[in-house]
Each structure stands twice: as structure tokens, then as C-alpha cells.
């Protein structure tokens, strides 16, 4: 997937990037200033927009591990996620609203997942499916396993289970829709691993050691396993 896209501003956290300078300023249009803080018409408009976003979603066609099999079952005949207006998988992240993260995330994949997430247009939502994306699940002790999707991207809904049944995933997605429709989404990142340019990393033994292998400009993700929860 091409990746010449938006900013890749180094040290900013995902949450900051999502919120922009000062919370909510992207809603502060001229109109809103003229009308005052929350006039009737604009609140109605807001709730209409929330209803819109909650009623219809395009999913990103995204599979990682075991959970994606149950995710496919959720799309397929018996469970038919499309009943809730959210069963259209798009192959390109540019056209998706929701990314379901179904599986174990390992060190090699996390930067790529982050990149895919970055490529989705706002407003975007994340459903983390399965114990692996909540915490690393059964593989938490692995030397290569990221302890949950929240280390990398902010998640709106966690659906625990190994794997969650399709019913559980549907429940999670409906809950997400409800939350969006009520205007309450504010995902929190716990301790984000960020993509940074290699040149910006703090110089230490490891970085010096790798200096001849990695280009200054290349994006890297640095894992600090000792501090993982």
C-alpha cells in the first residue's frame, strides 16, 4: 500500500494527533462562532451526524490471526453483520471507517498496522477483537508479542474472548454504534508505541549498533519490552 500520506510527525502521540491542538477545535467553524456555543440547530445537526456515523460503517478488510476467522463468520451467512449497516468490507483503508483488529500483534506487524490505521480518514474507530488485542492474550509472555493493540493505536471497544463468538463481536460493534450515536467516543491510549524516524531516536548502544543497517529517514518503532504492562 502506498504510504505517502499525511503527517508522520515524530513524537506526537496518536491521541494528540487525533485531537489536534486543544480539544474539539476542528468543530469550531465560523458558523458555530456566530451562533454561540451550542445553538439548537447545530446540536440537532451534531446529533444527526452522530446518528449517521453510528448507523453505517465500512469495515476495513483486515485479518491477522485466529480471530479473523470468527470475524469472517460474523460477516457471513448466519450472523450477517451487514444487518447493522456495517458489513461492507473495503479493501482500501482510505474508504474504511472501522478497523477491527482481530489477532495477535507482533513486533514486525505493529508498524504496518499503525501505518494502515494512519491511512484511514477521520473519523475512524477501532474495535479490538480478542484477548490478544486486549492484552496479548495467551501469547502475552512471548518475546515477540505486543501486549495489546492499545500499545499501538487507540481502541474504542474491546471485545474479549479467545476468540470472541460472532455474537460477541456483533454486540461489541453495536455497542460502538451506540456510543458513536450518543456522541461519546474518546479512546485513550495507554502507552503508545509510535513510528519515529530513525534519526530522531535517542542515541544509545542499540541505535549505534543499528546505524549502518537502517537509514536515517526510515520510520522505525522502538520496543521497550521491560516496560510493557
Amino acid at each position: 500500500m502506498s504510504s505517502h500520506n499525511q503527517d508522520t510527525t515524530g513524537a506526537q502521540t496518536t491521541q494528540e494527533a487525533r485531537m489536534g491542538e486543544g480539544v474539539d477545535n476542528r468543530f469550531n467553524s465560523k458558523l458555530r462562532e456566530a451562533f454561540g456555543s451550542s445553538p439548537f440547530i447545530l446540536t440537532k445537526f451534531d446529533s444527526f451526524m452522530n446518528w449517521v456515523r453510528g448507523s453505517s460503517m465500512f469495515m476495513l478488510q483486515f485479518g491477522i490471526a485466529c480471530c479473523s476467522i470468527e470475524m469472517m463468520h460474523t460477516y457471513a451467512v448466519k450472523h450477517d453483520l451487514d444487518r447493522f449497516g456495517s458489513g461492507v468490507p473495503r479493501a482500501s483503508p482510505r474508504q474504511a471507517d472501522v478497523i477491527i483488529v482481530p489477532g495477535t500483534i507482533v513486533s514486525k506487524f505493529a508498524p504496518r498496522m499503525k501505518r494502515v490505521y494512519d491511512q484511514m480518514p477521520e473519523p475512524k474507530f477501532v474495535v479490538s477483537m480478542g484477548s490478544c488485542t486486549c492484552s496479548g492474550g495467551p501469547f502475552q509472555e512471548g518475546y515477540n508479542v505486543i501486549k495489546g493493540a492499545e500499545e499501538v493505536i487507540p481502541c474504542d471497544i474491546h471485545v474479549p474472548g479467545c476468540p470472541p463468538r460472532p455474537e460477541a463481536l456483533i454486540y461489541g460493534i453495536v455497542k460502538l454504534q451506540e456510543r458513536i450515536a450518543n456522541g461519546e467516543t474518546a479512546p485513550v491510549t495507554v502507552k503508545p508505541y509510535e513510528l519515529e524516524q530513525f534519526g530522531d531516536l535517542e542515541e544509545d548502544e542499540l541505535v549505534q549498533h543499528l546505524a549502518d543497517q537502517i537509514d536515517e529517514e526510515d520510520l522505525v518503532m522502538r520496543y521497550n519490552w521491560a516496560e510493557s504492562p
Binding site: S3, K108, P111, L206, L210, I214, D218, L219, R222, Y223
Partner: peptide, 12 residues
């Protein structure tokens, strides 16, 4: 297992 690791992502 605790040592830090750096994983690159090369551009397209």
C-alpha cells in the same frame, strides 16, 4: 527478553 528492539518500516 527484556532488551529493547527497533523495527523499521521502509517506505514504498
Amino acid at each position: 527478553q527484556e532488551r529493547q528492539q527497533v523495527v523499521p518500516l521502509t517506505e514504498h
